[in-house]
Amino acid sequence: MLSAESIEKIEYELTKYPADQRQAAVMSALRIVQTERGWLSQECISEVAAYLRMPEIAAMEVATFYNMYDLEPVGKYKITVCTNISCMLRDSDAIVDHLQAKLGVGFNEVSADGKFCLKEGECMGACSGAPLMTVNNHTMYEFLTPESVDKILESLK
């Protein structure tokens, strides 16, 4: 069941589109439900599809196409490090190595305590702050150094 809070947010997104184009809100709806529940189970996707009165497969297509949707559990904090060219030139490899050593995980793995998941990201459009990463998709941390990464990890309780 979608929570009342999710429904309220989805309804706000629906105001952006014509009444007969409910499917247009699927990008937001999946984002809203994922933010609330941590990841998108098959059940979440079905619920979103039903609410928007669209075929389940069409919602599934969207959820699998865009890489910020997570179709598997990603722990409490999903850390996505950009390793594309501008970040690579400013040594994102060192940041990845540091995170992997510190969290004891490789890419696409969840730490033993279920707290962190590490992902490799593509260009996030903020290359002046390279190297950089996002936490749970919506908070970006720029100008990373191993030291600043430690501080950020400490702040994630």
Binding site: R31, M54, E61, F65, Y69
Partner: peptide, 27 residues
């Protein structure tokens, strides 16, 4: 005027993929 968002797909910078995405489809 409204703000809408992508969710991780470079291809949506291509204008017709972007339009598909606005319509709630894969880009």
């Amino acid at each position: 005027l409204y703000a809408v968002h992508g969710y991780g797909a470079y291809i949506c910078g291509e204008e017709t993929a972007l339009i598909e995405s606005i319509e709630g489809k894969k880009g």
